[in-house]
Simulated assay, not measured.
Amino acid sequence: MRIFLRDLYTCQRKGCGKIEGDMSVLVCDHIRPHRGNETLFWDESNLRMRCKACHDSNKQREKQQSLATCGVWH
């Protein structure tokens, strides 16, 4: 809830900025992947609000691209 309030229910992706009162279409997103690191997972400075559309399209594309640099995809 603190992240919703801090970010004023607003998507933090540049170019979007959608304000959304329906919390079911907002996602609390990790800036840096936590990869199981519990401290990083709960670190509020590593969290930002994204609307579901931005999270599902842009963030997931970023994650897929980063898999190659992690050695997951060959």
Rank of each mutant, 00 (worst) to 15 (best):
I19F: 11
R6N: 03
T69V: 12
Q60F: 08
M1C: 07
I31Q: 01
M23P: 04
S57W: 04
Q64A: 13
E62I: 05
R2E: 15
C11T: 08
L8M: 07
Q12T: 11
N46H: 00
Q60Y: 08
P33N: 10
Q60S: 12
G17I: 06
K63F: 06
R13K: 11
R6Y: 11
L47G: 00
V27R: 10
R50Q: 15
P33F: 06
R61S: 14
S66M: 10
V25N: 06
R50W: 15
R61K: 14
I3M: 15
T69G: 10
K52I: 12
C16G: 05
G21C: 08
D7P: 08
R6K: 14
G21W: 11
W42H: 11
Y9C: 06
K14W: 04
H74Q: 08
D43S: 03
R35C: 05
N46L: 02
S45D: 12
I31H: 00
G17W: 09
D56G: 05
Y9A: 04
L8Q: 09
K14M: 08
V25Y: 07
I3N: 10
R50F: 15
E44K: 11
K52V: 08
E38N: 02
C54K: 00
D22A: 08
I19M: 07
D7G: 07
H34N: 04
R2I: 12
L40C: 03
K63V: 09
R61E: 13
L5E: 15
S24A: 14
L40E: 06
C16M: 05
D7V: 07
T69L: 15
D43Q: 01
D43W: 03
C28S: 14
R48D: 00
C16A: 05
E20D: 09
R50H: 15
Q64F: 02
L67R: 12
L47N: 00
S45R: 12
R35V: 05
R35Q: 04
T10V: 05
D43K: 02
G71L: 10
T69P: 02
C51P: 03
Q60K: 13
F41N: 07
L67S: 07
L40V: 09
S45Y: 03
A53F: 03
C54N: 01
D29R: 04
H34W: 09
R61Y: 10
G71W: 08
D22C: 06
M23H: 03
Q60G: 05
L8W: 03
I19Q: 13
L67F: 10
W42N: 10
T69E: 13
R32Q: 09
Q60E: 15
